[in-house]
Design a protein around this nucleic acid. Structure first.
Length: 543
RNA sequence: GCCCCGGUAGCUCAGCUGGAUAGAGCAACGGACUUCUAAUCCGUAGGUCACAGGUUCGAAUCCUGUCCGGGGUACCA
C-alpha cells in the first residue's frame, strides 16, 4: 500500500513543476485544528516571495492544478493566510488497519538493515552498586539500542570499564582496610575510601575464601571487590531487562599496546609535549582553548588517553553507527576524544554522543545528595524493588535527555497506581480482555470475515489516525535518537483507545460492527504491544 | 570569565528542523460504573511560554543580550 504522505509530496512537486514555480522543500503535517483536515502544507506561503503573488491566490492555483485522483483525498481546502489542507478519506485508514492486521511487526523500519551499530552505555566503574544516577543512562542506552534493532540494525550493547585507575585502587585499599579491621589488626582506611557496608561484606568474603594471612596490598582485595561488585551490577541490570553483549576493559588497551601506539602517532604529528613533569596533548594546535594533560606526573595517564584508544578501537571494528551515552559531566571531555581521533585521520562522523542531564532524587520533598564513595545513595535495586522495573524504565525514558529529571521517590512509590505507565498498560490489558470476552461469546475476527469500512464513528477514525502515525513516529525517534517521543506517542494512542472504549461498545448485538471493532482493537493491541516492547516495558494481559 | 543544558499551568514536564485557538499527568472542583476492567471517561478552573530586543506574512520554537537554576571548565572519571 502506498503511504499517503509521499504520494501527496509527489503530486505537489509535479504541480509546482508544471506551473513553473521554483522548487521548494515540501512539508506536510497534521494541523492542530482538525477542522483544517488531516494534513496541511505551507507551500503557498513559502512561494509568496519568489512569485510576488498573494499566497491565497497561489494556494488556489495549486489546488486547481493538483491531480490527486489516485489518492484517498476527500477534500482540499485553502485557508488564510495561505495554507493548503487535505482531508484524507476514511478508506485510507481502513487500508492501514488491514495492513496492521497482516503484520505483527507493524511499525518496524528497514533503514538499518545490513548495518551495524554499537551502543556504549552504563560504563560505570565497579566501585559500588548501580545508583539511580546510573539508571537514566542504563535505560536510555538500552531503549536506543531497542530502537536501532527495531529498525534493522545489528546492535552490540557494550559496557566499558576501568579497573586500572585511581578509583579502583582506592576500592582495593578500602576492602583491605576492612579485612584487617575484621581481623582486629591495625589498618589504614584510605582518604576518599569507599565507606559502604558492601565493602565490609566483600572483605568478609575475601577472608572466607583466602584465609587470614593475606598481606597488605595483596591483589585479591581489588580483584575480589571487582568480581563481587560486577556480579551485583549485572544482576541489577538484569532486573531492568538489560543485558550486554560485550564488556570492554580499559586494561586491554594498555596490554595490547594500543595506548603506546596512539601516543606515538600523536607525537609524530607533534601533538604531544612534556611540561612540568607531565605529558600534554597539544589541543590548542587543533583550535581548542587549552592543552590537556595526557600523562600525569605520577606516570598515570588521564582518562582521556584510554578513552581515546577505546574509541579508536570501536571505529576500527567498523560499526556503521557508534553511540555513546554520557551524563552531562562528560560534556567537555568527549570533544577532546574526537579531536585526537580526527587529528589521526580517523572518521568520527558516525559517532553520536547522547548527553543526558542529571537526575535529581527527591524524597520527602528534599533533594537526596548522592555519593558512591560516602555510600549515601539510593541503589537501582532498591528503586526497582520499590516501584517495579516498568515504572523505573518509563520514568527514565519519558523525558527529554536535555531536561533535568526530578525523580520523586515518594510519588513513584506511593502513587504508583496513578503512574502514567499503567495508563498504557491498562489500555493493553483492556484490549486483551475485550478479545477474550468476544471469544467467550463466540465472536472472533480471526474466524469470521470482517468489514473495516464499517468503522466510521469519530472515535474509531481518530484511533485509526493515531495507529497510522506509528511508523513515522518510530522513524522520527530513530533519526532524532529521542526515545521520549515514543512514550508520548503511546500515551496519546492509549488515550485515543480509552476514549473509543467509552464511546463504542465492541462486543454487541450488531455482529458485523462487532467484528470490525474487534479488528480495530486488535490493530491497537499490535501498536501498543510493539511500542511497549520498544521501551522495554511489559504488556500485561490482565491488570 | 568561558562552554553545554534548562526556565512553558500550583507541581513534574511534553511541544522547539517557525505555522493557524500552547498541551498532558499530578494537585483542585463537578459529573459518569445493574454494561467488553472506573488503573477509565466527560466537564470546570488554571498561562505575560523567565525578561528585553531582532528576523519573518507568522516566534514557545530561530538570532542577540540580560536574569535565574544545573553541569563542566582538574595532573578526578
Amino acid at each position: 500500500m502506498m503511504t499517503i504522505l509521499p504520494q501527496l509530496i509527489q503530486a505537489l512537486t509535479e504541480t509546482i513543476q508544471s506551473l513553473g514555480y521554483p522548487e521548494k522543500e515540501i512539508k506536510l503535517s497534521p494541523p492542530n485544528n482538525p477542522e483544517f483536515g488531516d494534513l496541511s502544507t505551507n507551500l503557498p506561503l513559502t512561494l509568496t516571495k519568489d512569485l510576488k503573488l498573494d499566497p491565497m491566490a497561489i494556494a488556489e492555483t495549486i489546488k486547481d492544478e493538483l491531480n490527486l485522483s489516485d489518492a484517498n483525498i476527500d477534500a482540499i481546502t485553502v485557508t488564510p493566510p495561505g495554507f493548503l489542507n487535505f482531508k484524507i478519506g476514511n478508506t485510507y485508514y481502513h487500508q492501514v488497519l488491514s495492513e496492521i492486521l497482516e503484520n505483527e511487526q507493524y511499525g518496524r523500519g528497514k533503514s538499518g538493515e545490513g548495518l551495524t551499530a554499537n551502543v556504549e552505555f552504563v560504563s560505570a566503574n565497579p566501585t559500588g552498586p548501580l545508583t539511580v544516577g546510573h539508571g537514566r543512562n542504563a535505560v536510555l542506552g538500552d531503549t536506543v539500542a531497542n530502537i536501532l534493532e527495531w529498525n534493522g540494525y545489528d546492535v552490540t550493547r557494550e559496557y566499558y570499564f576501568n579497573d586500572a585507575g585511581r578509583q579502583m585502587r582506592i576500592l582495593g585499599q578500602s576492602v583491605e582496610a576492612r579485612y584487617f579491621e575484621i581481623l582486629g589488626k591495625d589498618y589504614f582506611f584510605p582518604e576518599d575510601g569507599y565507606e559502604g557496608n558492601y565493602i565490609k561484606s566483600i572483605a568478609q568474603t575475601v577472608l572466607d575464601e583466602f584465609g587470614d594471612d593475606l598481606k597488605p596490598a595483596d591483589e585479591q582485595f581489588k580483584t575480589q571487590a571487582e568480581k563481587a561488585i560486577f556480579a551485583d551490577i549485572e544482576k541489577s541490570l538484569f532486573k531492568l531487562g538489560i543485558h550486554f553483549d560485550q564488556f570492554t576493559n580499559e586494561k586491554t588497551f594498555y596490554e595490547n599496546g594500543e595506548i603506546d601506539r596512539f601516543l606515538e602517532e600523536l607525537k609524530a604529528k607533534d601533538l604531544i609535549y612534556e611540561k612540568d613533569g607531565a605529558t600534554w596533548f597539544r589541543a590548542t594546535a587543533l583550535g581548542k582553548e587549552q592543552d590537556r594533560v595526557y600523562i600525569k606526573g605520577t606516570g598515570e595517564p588521564t582518562y582521556r588517553v584510554p578513552d581515546t584508544a577505546y574509541h579508536r578501537d570501536k571505529i576500527n571494528r567498523n560499526f556503521d553507527l557508534i553511540i555513546d551515552v554520557f551524563g552531562a559531566d562528560h560534556a567537555d571531555t568527549y570533544p577532546d576524544v574526537l579531536l585526537a581521533l580526527d587529528a589521526l585521520g580517523m572518521k568520527t562522523e558516525h559517532i553520536h554522543v547522547l548527553l543526558y542531564q542529571f537526575v535529581t532524587l527527591l524524597r520527602g520533598g528534599e533533594k537526596v545528595k548522592m555519593s558512591t564513595r560516602k555510600a549515601n545513595f539510593v541503589t537501582m535495586d532498591e528503586l526497582v524493588e520499590e516501584v517495579g522495573a516498568d515504572v523505573v524504565r518509563y520514568f527514565f525514558i519519558m523525558r527529554s535527555v536535555n531536561s533535568h529529571l526530578n525523580f520523586d521517590l515518594d510519588l513513584a512509590a506511593d502513587q504508583s497506581e496513578k503512574n502514567p505507565v499503567y495508563y498504557l498498560q491498562y489500555a493493553h490489558a483492556r484490549i486483551c480482555n475485550i478479545i477474550k470476552h468476544g471469544e467467550s461469546t463466540g465472536i472472533s475476527s480471526d474466524e469470521e470475515a470482517y468489514d473495516v469500512s464499517l468503522l466510521v464513528h469519530p472515535a474509531e477514525i481518530k484511533l485509526l489516525k493515531r495507529l497510522e502515525q506509528f511508523p513515522s513516529n518510530v522513524e522520527n525517534a530513530l533519526d532524532s535518537l529521542e526515545p521520549q517521543t515514543i512514550a508520548n506517542y503511546l500515551h496519546d494512542t492509549a488515550n485515543q483507545f480509552h476514549k473509543f472504549y467509552s464511546e463504542c461498545r465492541v462486543i454487541a448485538e450488531d455482529l458485523p460492527l462487532s467484528l470490525a471493532r474487534l479488528a480495530l482493537v486488535k490493530g491497537t493491541r499490535t501498536v501498543l504491544s510493539n511500542g511497549l516492547s520498544l521501551l522495554g516495558l511489559t504488556a500485561p494481559e490482565r491488570m
